[in-house]
């Protein structure tokens, strides 16, 4: 019992940044746009959070700055891919490289300075007697709660509202959506911007909760894992929750085995999540060989309304 609780806590701690980024990715891709800038956006989110918090010591201000910076980057991606119909892959990769470089430059002065008392926990001590889940849910920080609320909201939005239906139509068949009077470009802009903000929040979460010190390149490929998790989760927020925690568990397991003096070299343990990512892609690809993969069908395809004049 004790062990399960501990593992669950560790999985959630390591998995929540992934969850934010994956939810962001799901939102973007549901609108039919590919955003490969996740890694860069997470890094920018992290460095913005570190700088703002060290300067102001205010959590709300920090979150606001993160949303602003990554929202702007998202808007730029949307402008390039929706309005100018630029290549989405290239734009996303550029954003990753740009984010990595700029965050390294901006973070030079604050490297290694720990953030203290950054994120309050919501103490629900009265839950402790509940077996397994009680101690887990009783001491979560606001970021984790926010991510859980987000999963619920996104599920409700996607599958239980008209707007969610419209979004799914936009990602699957923009021409049809357009004929039905749905504003394709508006949905795409909104989703790319909001989704990019969530990716930034994932980075901020990683920095402020998981390892509260800015180090260059601290995301260590989590952005890429999040992109694979989108496919693993079949563009469904609920599955994203399970997938992110599973990968969080692997991540923390590696760490623990290392502490326990496992004879396996630590490098191999660190490789596990990435190896598993490849395994997951093979598995998903194989299973969906002859079916709809759940992928938005117009993913990566710019939409041009039929020539009008």
């Amino acid at each position: 019992m004790e062990l399960i609780t501990q593992l669950l806590i560790a999985a959630m701690a390591a998995g929540t940044p992934l969850l934010f980024a994956t939810l962001g990715g799901i939102l973007v891709e549901r609108s039919g746009i590919i955003q490969l800038g996740t890694e860069g956006l997470m890094l920018m989110g992290a460095v913005t959070a570190a700088m703002t918090f060290l300067a102001t010591a205010s959590l709300p201000l920090t979150v606001l700055m993160v949303l602003l910076v990554t929202g702007l980057m998202g808007a730029f991606h949307a402008f390039l891919t929706v309005t100018l119909r630029a290549n989405q892959i290239v734009s996303g990769l550029a954003m990753t490289l740009f984010g990595a470089g700029l965050s390294a430059y901006l973070g030079k002065k604050i490297t290694g300075i720990p953030l203290q008392g950054a994120v309050p926990k919501i103490d629900l001590g009265w839950l402790d007697p509940v077996p397994i889940l009680g101690p887990v849910l009783g001491h979560l920080d606001v970021f984790t709660w926010a991510s859980l609320v987000l999963v619920v909201l996104m599920t409700l939005y996607l599958y239980h509202t008209s707007w969610g239906l419209h979004l799914r139509a936009v990602g699957d068949n923009p021409a049809t959506a357009d004929v039905m009077g749905i504003r394709v470009q508006v949905f795409r802009y909104g989703c790319v911007i909001l989704g990019s903000m969530l990716m930034g929040l994932g980075g901020a979460n990683l920095l402020m909760v998981f390892s509260p010190t800015w180090i260059e390149g601290m995301t260590a490929g989590r952005g890429w894992i999040a992109i694979a998790l989108i496919i693993f989760a079949r563009w469904n927020p609920l599955y994203a929750l399970a997938a992110a925690y599973f990968f969080g568990l692997l991540d923390s397991l590696g760490f623990r085995l290392q502490l326990a003096g496992s004879p396996i070299p630590p490098y191999f343990l660190k490789m596990i999540p990435y190896l598993l990512t490849i395994a997951v892609l093979i598995f998903v690809g194989w299973r969906t060989k002859h079916k709809l993969s759940g992928s938005p069908m117009a993913l990566g395809v710019p939409y041009i309304r039929e020539q009008r004049f």
């Binding site: 008209s162 239906l165 139509a169 699957d172 049809t176 039905m180």
Partner: peptide, 21 residues
């Protein structure tokens, strides 16, 4: 038509006066 939606969903697509489905 959007292939991944049901026939009924396709038909009501674009209606916005009902937020919750």
């Amino acid at each position: 038509l959007v292939p991944s939606l049901t026939a009924a969903e396709n038909i009501v697509l674009g209606e916005t006066h009902q937020v919750w489905r």
